[in-house]
């Protein structure tokens, strides 16, 4: 028994070095060749850098707004609302979001509100919105920025991320990149 214990301890320590040590360092080494040396992808604009994949809170009229977030886009944490589909408190909250959105976008109909704009994501840091959600906000932004609607339509078209290889997965738009491009529009 004592021998078994000793073997178990020695094997555990050896594996600890192999797995937590060597494996980690190997992947760390490989990651140095990856974009931004494995520190997460970034985008730069006006001398500032942002994480491309971390969603940001956009609430201003002049920007394409992002989805509601259960963690207020605080990337030091993450998580969803975890509200069940039949929870009456939750349904009242969604109803309130719909009402607010209709006030903010007076030219748009209720039936055009895409579901992702009134529901929180799983991570609370979703960097994307659906194409429908971007199109929904065109009229409001055109008014707030005093630019033409068709300019915004082209912008959305240029920033729509197609399905992988054109075949797999949904279409979507990275809100941050869209808004950076929006700031550059004259």
């Amino acid at each position: 028994m004592k021998n078994t214990f000793l073997q178990a301890i020695k094997l555990s320590l050896a594996c600890l070095i192999l797995l937590s040590g060597i494996y980690t360092l190997l992947i760390f080494g490989i990651a140095q060749a990856a974009p931004n040396h494995g520190k997460g992808e970034v985008v730069s604009a006006n001398g500032k850098t942002y994480y491309a994949n971390i969603g940001q809170s956009f609430t201003s009229d002049k920007y394409f707004n992002s989805r509601p977030s259960a963690v207020a886009y605080n990337a030091a944490g993450s998580g969803g609302s975890n509200k069940g589909p039949s929870n009456s408190e939750y349904l009242a909250e969604v109803q309130k979001r719909i009402d607010t959105i209709l006030i903010l976008n007076p030219d748009m109909k209720r039936s055009a509100i895409p579901a992702d704009l009134v529901t929180a994501s799983g991570s609370g840091l979703d960097p994307h919105i659906s194409v429908l959600a971007a199109k929904f906000q065109i009229k409001r932004i055109a008014k707030a920025r005093n630019i033409k609607v068709n300019q915004l339509e082209t912008l959305i078209e240029n920033h729509t991320e197609k399905a992988l290889l054109g075949l797999f997965g949904p279409e979507k738009i990275n809100v941050l990149e869209l808004n950076i491009a929006l700031d550059k529009l004259k």
């Binding site: 349904l91 895409p114 949904p170």
Partner: peptide
């Protein structure tokens, strides 16, 4: 509630996965 739910259930889901 009369909104566009054509993309399915979205609460707790990420747009990039669908």
């Amino acid at each position: 509630m009369g909104i566009d739910t054509s993309m399915g259930a979205t609460e707790g889901k990420e747009v990039r996965f669908g």
